[in-house]
Design a protein around this nucleic acid. Structure first.
Lengths: 323, 323
DNA sequence: CTGTTAGCGCCTTCAA
DNA sequence: TTGAAGGCGCTAACAG
């Protein structure tokens, strides 16, 4: 083993402070059994000596690593190709650094890979806490976490009525607010709601909000689900049948982009208000008046970590979006 | 400390095998000082008992964590909002899992955050190996890694002529091949090269390849740099001045999308061959015959890890792209 | 309130 | 070729 150049341990602290190692340890951990005076003295000394605890040693005695595992969806189950994920990572990491924890990730192209990854983390690296960046029904990974009684928090509302803890936006409310906002534009009476073919939970919720808003103002809701294949015809047919559409709310940027492609082709003169969720540089590519609801992915990430370190009876946290 | 339900240690193995702990340890590490016979016997026993080494303990004695830190660019220095990164992560992780290593990430919105993140990893978590997902001149993070003599590999060719080890595609060759391929389309004589405003190293290289190819076939190269602001006018002006353009090679998908937006507006009848680097679902949004060069980000990731675990005099690895 | 002692799981020098 | 003993840095049970 290559010797560290210089590395201050509690031993050094103990010696220099003229106390035993255990006292030093307790003082550094702010144990109330040590007199406040010596605690402060030792903590100051530690700071002066630039003491940094060795977490690999701590982990050994704790039986848990100072690591939170972040689990990515596979390509099939979701779309990890989404910038949203990077933002969430940044938020997660920010909260972790503050707690002297480290972010580790589990990622793979198939569920089995991911599961193997997670079990390795648990069994060999002693990771006990996880953040899931997706929800999926009958997910073997979640099954495993539950079975092993590990701590985990999901980002995004779980589909069933499961007891898992989660962090999410209030997507129903967001859908409603977005609709109301777009109706502020003078004369808008027929905003179209565009959703993807995947029926994500958040899409369902945003649509509910949309429908709620439309009901409130006594307008007829109109929903279009983008077809699986990226083809123009379906959209074109729909738009021809619905000449009345005078605004659009899409569940995400790519959806709006797909829609706009057809719109600008067959209605190229006409500008209408458009709305999307999540800010994205892609929206700059749309030659329309686009507004967006920022779901604040960073905040979702950092709140997830907070929830993870709260006692287990706190079930969920809602993150406020920004219009 | 919560007691583990059941956890087999080398002690158990040693006892059941009737040998001492040190022999068990050595046998499991395939130390040649132990007779092949007992080595095999003990390894078999370990497997039968589902023995898994405790890496937090190993790490303590090794003085190094079984962790590789993956460092993300900040938003300013690059664009982490790129799906490319997720693919690289997947590749990196795949190689790491095989080595019983874990992937940790350092990410932040400002360089200082990232640097703090990295130093914490080094000092407190004993991480000694890193993969950088970006290159930047005068990067304090790289400075730190060099100064501390830590092992790191960069993905993407470093700008200066620095001694850092890196993994990259042969972008010059890729640019040449892409150009040659597009020239195969009957009648193409004036393929335009579209690059971003950022002057990334890989763009420069691809352009070099493009210019090389054009020189070889004695055609006049034509390069357009997208303006910073997402505005149509510059592109439009350029296209009006260059009616001859009959094919496009863009350095990335968003660039092609931006270009195509104008193209389809002012030349909407005309279809031309287009080419982009990196596969991307966004390209499906272009109503043209688009081909792409797959730079194989997963492979870049996994090769980076291999390089990281090779002795330091191997300087670089080139990953083959796919046309 | 503080010190002594043992131990977490594994590795490695030293001795046989 | 193997074993005994000590140690990595830190924590915790038990004394005093």
């Amino acid at each position: 083993m290559k010797k560290e150049t210089l590395m201050i341990t509690i031993k050094d602290i103990a010696r220099r402070a003229g106390v035993s190692v255990s006292t030093a340890s307790r003082a550094l951990n702010n144990n109330s059994r040590i007199s406040l005076k010596t605690r402060e003295r030792i903590q100051k000394l530690a700071k002066d000596l630039d003491y940094l605890p060795n977490y690999t040693a701590k982990n050994l005695t704790r039986g848990e690593a100072n690591v939170v595992g972040v689990i990515f969806p596979t390509v099939e189950s979701s779309s990890p190709e989404n910038p949203f994920y990077i933002d969430m990572l940044r938020g997660i990491n920010q909260s972790l650094v503050a707690r002297h924890y480290v972010l580790s990730i589990a990622i793979g192209s198939r569920v089995e890979e991911v599961l193997a990854n997670v079990t390795a983390m648990v069994q060999q690296a002693k990771v006990k806490r996880f953040v899931l960046l997706y929800t999926d029904e009958n997910d073997p990974v979640v099954d495993y976490l539950r079975r092993e009684n590990l701590d985990f928090v999901v980002i995004g509302q779980p589909v069933g009525d499961l007891p898992d803890r989660y962090v999410d936006n209030d997507n129903v409310q967001a859908g409603r607010d977005a609709t109301m906002a777009i109706l502020q534009n003078g004369g808008v009476r027929n905003p179209l709601f565009v959703e993807s073919e995947y029926e994500w939970q958040y899409e369902r919720n945003r649509r509910m909000g949309y429908e709620k808003a439309m009901a409130e103002v006594q307008l007829e809701p109109l929903v279009f689900r983008l077809p699986k294949r990226v083809s123009e015809t379906a959209v074109e047919v729909f738009l021809n049948q619905h000449q009345e559409v005078d605004a659009v709310i899409a569940t995400d940027d790519v959806g709006l982009l797909r829609f706009n492609r057809v719109w600008s082709k067959i209605r190229h003169t006409k500008k209408i208000p458009m709305m999307s969720f999540n800010k994205s540089e892609l929206l700059a590519l749309i030659d329309q008046d686009v507004r967006m609801v920022d779901m604040r992915p960073e905040m979702l990430g950092s709140r997830a970590v907070e929830l993870l370190f709260t006692d287990r009876n706190v079930q969920k946290l809602i993150v406020q979006y920004e219009l």
